[in-house]
């Protein structure tokens, strides 16, 4: 009896504690998500009456060249940005993990761009990328490279945004650094005693033990990359010629410029499904590639 009352009271208290979160989740996340799913089957501009059109929006999406272009741009960006971000971030974290004088200052400098707002970074890089007056072309001029029309050229606009995003690799470095410093030094000492050189220590100790961190950076980076908006919107507005027309810009334009809320809901739904499926695939692969033994 006593136990039962206590358990019930504890349960009630527990539910009360999670109630604010639960209400917030229902009102601000689950509710809008469900509503958006419903809207995706309608023709609605926010003003007109909702008109049920079944899968029409999804069928139209499959024939929409802007949809396919935005998906292509986003996936290409995500692929190259993720790989380069992981490699550069990991390499710099390895360097910054060395006990060298001035390393703290070095780490701070690298982390600084990560705390700047996306808009400020985009404006700054617009200057740096400028074909005639930008510092980047000025520097390249010293090694004989002709001026590149970074953000006004169809072929260079997307790489330009990747380069700009890589400048903010500091946040990835910090996560990798935390992971690296969590590896017990005894493992390296033991490996060294056994005659393992630097490369072997990297492959046999560092990378396996860092795999949960790498996996975390991969998942978070993937989800964020699929939703890139600010930088491209500020720098190129999706141009030139849709070369940087990211999925989120398309979604924004459909929602807030064209007010096709039903169609935009379908776009959002498709993005959700794409992110969900690819994340599941990454999680599935992680079961075989991520080493949690020492975590």
């Amino acid at each position: 009896m006593f136990n039962s009352d206590l358990l019930r009271r504890e349960a009630i208290q527990g539910y009360l504690f999670i109630l604010p979160w639960f209400v917030g989740f229902v009102v601000f996340t689950a509710g809008p998500l469900t509503a958006a799913l419903g809207f995706s089957f309608t023709d609605w501009n926010g003003v007109s009456a909702l008109e049920w059109i079944g899968f029409e929006n999804y069928i139209q999406l499959s024939q929409d060249s802007r949809f396919w272009q935005s998906l292509k741009v986003t996936l290409v960006f995500t692929f190259f940005y993720l790989i380069l971000n992981l490699i550069i971030g990991f390499a710099l974290a390895l360097v910054m993990n060395q006990p060298a004088p001035g390393m703290r200052l070095f780490r701070t400098i690298y982390y600084l761009p990560a705390v700047l707002s996306g808009v400020a970074v985009a404006v700054l890089w617009s200057f740096l990328f400028h074909r005639e007056f930008g510092a980047l072309n000025w520097l390249l001029g010293f090694i004989g490279i002709k001026r590149i029309g970074w953000i006004v050229s169809e072929s260079w606009a997307l790489p330009s945004i990747i380069i700009m995003e890589l400048w903010r690799v500091g946040s990835t470095i910090i996560i990798f650094l935390a992971g690296l410093q969590g590896i017990p030094p005894e493992l390296y000492e033991a490996a060294e005693v056994d005659g393992a050189n630097r490369r072997w220590r990297l492959w046999s100790i560092t990378i396996p033990l860092m795999s949960p961190t790498i996996f975390f950076v991969l998942i978070v980076g993937f989800i964020n990359s699929m939703q890139v908006f600010t930088q491209a919107y500020i720098m190129t507005r999706g141009g030139p010629n849709y070369a940087t027309f990211f999925y989120s810009i398309n979604l924004y334009q459909t929602t807030f410029r064209e007010l096709r809320l039903g169609y935009a809901s379908a776009q959002a739904g498709v993005l959700f499904v794409i992110i969900f499926i690819i994340t599941l695939c990454i999680l599935w692969v992680s079961r075989y590639r991520v080493n949690y033994e020492l975590v």
Binding site: V152, S153, E154, G238, G239, P240, N241, Q253, E258
Partner: peptide, 19 residues
């Protein structure tokens, strides 16, 4: 006009750059 403006802006820089 808003949609025309968006379509125009997306293409015109490319035209001025040689498309």
């Amino acid at each position: 006009m808003g949609e025309y403006d968006a379509a125009w802006n997306a293409r015109i820089i490319g035209v001025f750059e040689g498309n």
